[in-house]
Each structure stands twice: as C-alpha cells, then as structure tokens.
C-alpha cells in the first residue's frame, strides 16, 4: 500500500431513509501523485465517495486509508488539515480578505507570520492572481473564476499532498473553465499532488484525468486511463457514456508524445509547434488550418523532439478504433 495515497476498501454509504446505498461496496486505489477524475451523472454517488475521504460523510461500512492510515482513527480536524478541499460553491469567507482566507490553515498549523506571508504570495502567483492587486481584496470583489482560483490557493495553503475537488469548475463559464483546467494540469505536473476530482463533464474528466473512475448507481463501472476508457469501454454503460464511435473524442485522449515520430528532414519555420502534452484533436485542428501536413512537438524547453503528421493521426486513429471494436 506504500505508493497508494488513497485506498477505499469495500466502502458503503447508505443515507438514512434512502432505499438503496449511495455508494455500494466500492474498492479503489489511488496512486500517489496521480490525477484521478470521478465521472458520473448526478446521484451516482461520486460526490459521496469523495466526501468520505475527508469525513464530511462517514461511511456506513468499509474502510478508507489515506497515506496508509485508516481515516476513522485519525482526529478529523487533523486529517482535514492535510487534505486540500475545493468545492463548486468555493465557500470563501466573505468577511476576510483574500490573504486572510489563504492564511487560514497555515495559521491553525502555527506557521510564523513571515512564512505565511511568503506562502500567500507564492500561491497567488501560482494561480495567476498578482499578489499586490489581490491580497487585500475581499471575495465579493472577484469574479467567479478568480474566486475559484483563490479557493484553489486556499486549499493548497497548508501544502497538502492530497486534493479533493468537487466539481470545482462547474459554475464557471466555458472559457475561464478551460484555462483553469489547463492551469490545474500544470500545477499538478509541477507539484505532484494526488488529486481526486469529481465532475459530470465527460470532456473535463478525459482532459484532466490520468485515470478516470466511472460511476453509476453507487458502483464503479470502470477505472482506467482515458485512452482505455475510450477504446475499451468495460460495459455498455461506459460505452454509451463516452460515445466511443466519436473520432474526435478518441483523438482528444491521445497525447502528442505517444503519437509523434522522429523529425526527418528540415523543420519548416512556419510549421506549428505544440507541447508534448497536447492532445491529437487540437493537433488535427492545427494541421487543418496550416499549410503543412504536420506539426513539430517540443518539450518544456522549447526544443523540438518529434513530429506528428496527418498520416500518423490516421494510423493511430484506425488502431484505436480497431482496439475499441475488439
């Protein structure tokens, strides 16, 4: 269990007066440092599953381990202080400034003022809110997207290894949501947090998750990588949910680095460049708009490391289609 950050062991949650359990005998292991999205329709038990980790809800039966410890045996406040928690409604404290909001957990943990001060700046920069403009502001002076950035910063303030996120971008407009998603991916890549992220948005689940948990009726339907979910849905429910016949959706879960080949011949100066993490759907869009039939893939230092051509996309698409058919 050493490298499993969160482990669910036959966890069941039955609310009083409900005729069937919200979460039914779920066993699940979340690897340390992985980004796992939990996908399902409302009422499928995804939020209940998430909220049992930090004991907002207590399981009816079964056990949950966080970093090897049974959560039921850890004092609840102590457990929560080492788990970041972000909810859709954000829940910023309206009577406190942004810096006071972010300082909440470090204060409780007894950090000294200088350390807290530096942490606030560091976190605000991480979520792209200039500290000098935002520290002294109040939550009501911020847009929804900015508020959730602060929510994210506040959740990370105590430097937790684990983040629980309950539809954090659900109430945010599509454009802001997309950039928040991209930033969250970058933050996770950089800081290696273990993230458990609940969403009902399939695109979001595919885009963000290293792995996806698909839930229905309180049970896990499939727990796998986006690529396998699309190409090898475990059952009819999953397959209906992700519409695996959709070419674009299949391309959207393939990353540039898994498709690219070595660069042969010259690199044209106006050939479009993409990062290794870029998905193939976007690459296809680039190619369609470009005068070349290929794009150059570069690493974090903007060094070209490979090339993706239209032909590659065709081959991989055909391959994944045959995988999903088999």
């Amino acid at each position: 269990m050493a490298n499993h950050s969160i482990v669910f062991d036959k966890v069941t949650k039955r609310f009083p007066k409900a005729d069937k359990p919200s979460v039914n005998e779920v066993s699940l292991q979340i690897e340390e440092g992985s980004f796992v999205t939990i996908l399902g329709a409302s009422g499928c038990g995804k939020t209940t599953l998430l909220k049992m980790v930090n004991r907002i809800y207590e399981p009816t039966s079964g056990r949950i381990f966080v970093e090897g410890e049974d959560v039921a045996t850890v004092p609840v406040t102590q457990l929560r202080r080492k788990i970041g928690y972000v909810i859709q409604q954000v829940g910023l404290f309206p009577h406190m400034t942004i810096e006071e909001n972010i300082a909440t957990v470090p204060r409780i943990l007894g950090w000294d003022n200088k350390q807290i001060d530096e942490r606030i700046d560091e976190l605000l920069e991480l979520v792209h809110l200039p500290p000098k403009d935002f520290r002294k502001r109040y939550p009501r002076q911020l847009s929804g997207g900015q508020q959730q950035r602060v929510g994210l910063a506040r959740a990370m303030a105590g430097n937790p290894a684990i983040m629980l996120m309950d539809e954090p971008f659900g109430a945010i407009d599509a454009i802001t949501r997309a950039s928040l998603q991209d930033e969250l991916i970058q933050i996770q890549r950089r800081l290696h947090k273990t993230i458990l992220f609940v969403t009902h948005d399939i695109e979001e689940a595919l885009k963000l998750g290293d792995k996806i948990v698909i839930m229905n009726n309180g049970e896990i339907q499939q727990y796998d990588t986006p690529f396998h979910i699309i190409t090898q849905p475990a059952n009819a429910f999953v397959s209906r949910l992700v519409h695996s016949e959709d070419v674009l959706k299949r391309l959207s879960v393939m990353k540039a680095e898994s498709v690219m080949t070595e660069i042969e011949g010259t690199v044209h100066p106006n050939e479009i460049r993409v990062s290794k993490e870029e998905n193939c759907k976007t690459i296809l869009m680039h190619i369609l708009k470009s005068e070349h039939d290929s794009v150059i893939v570069e690493d974090g230092n903007q060094t070209p490391v490979g090339r993706v051509t239209l032909a590659h996309l065709k081959i991989h698409e055909a391959l994944s289609q045959s995988l999903s058919a088999s």
Binding site: I56, Y85, Q89, F93
Partner: peptide, 14 residues
C-alpha cells in the same frame, strides 16, 4: 451559507 461552513470544516477548522 452552508458552502462556507463546509469549506471551513473541510479545511480542518475545529
């Protein structure tokens, strides 16, 4: 607001 309470609880406030 219930979400403010939930956020506070979730952060580990006693």
């Amino acid at each position: 607001d219930a979400s403010i309470i939930e956020a506070g609880k979730g952060m580990g406030l006693s």
